[in-house]
Amino acid sequence: MSDIPKSVKILDIVQENSLVKTYTLDISLHGKPGQFCNIWIPRLNEKPFSVADDDGKVMKFSIAEIGPFTQELAKKKVGDKVGIRGPYGKGFEYKKGEHLVFLAGGYGAAPLYFLARQAGEDGCEIEFIVGARSENLLLYIDKIKKLKNVHLHIATDDGSKGYRGYNIEVLKEILLNKKIDHIYTCGPEIMMKKVSEMAFEKNIPAQISVERYMKCGFGICGNCVNDGTGAPSCKKGPVMSNEEVRKLKDFGQYHRDEEGMKVKL
């Protein structure tokens, strides 16, 4: 038992799109799709990131450059070191042989790709919807195309690639035409809120990645507690069933900042 960061070398860095890079780290923590790890840059900060891959030898993280921490991370080179601890939280689960639909927004394509690879090999059939504002922000498209038993659907808000409009419309279409056993979603909360409602109306089980401001990752600091249940999402989530998600009062409404103050979505 140790929740102290270990320092590891960056083995590889790949530019995925205009915003996102994938970092391969020289460690396996046996992370599962949907779980997260905290990555540490000494003397700056430490932030949680979804596991994009863990093959038992190395781990991958796909990280968008959006703030001071990720900008500093983007300056790192192969051979540089970062700290890492985890994995934390509950990941996604599936049953072999089921027909699944995945809905990914933004970087959410990375953990869902990791899940699709495993589920596809386990005989699941997967409708994988990737959405973004426009083509240059789509993530992991080429990788998803190569997966076994996976059908890729693309949606962009501006129509520069695939369906023009929100990816949630593509989901609606698929649910109308195909018999789906389970829905999985990871991405912006407003989008996932719609998925939650749609899944409930159609009476299809769903798993949703509920992200909150995580500090410790192990259920102590209380920064990530949800309203409604009062439980820490770093322990009871981030992935929760739609049943659990529907008990949350903050989901799709507000988050809490570093000091616990409510911030409207």
């Binding site: 140790s2 929740d3 905290n38 540490w40 700056l44 900060n45 102590i220 570093e258 103050m261």
Partner: peptide, 14 residues
């Protein structure tokens, strides 16, 4: 309102 420290804020072992 009172700001806390940057992460890591908590580490632990057995």
């Amino acid at each position: 309102r009172h700001k806390g420290h940057p992460n890591p804020v908590i580490i632990a072992n057995e």
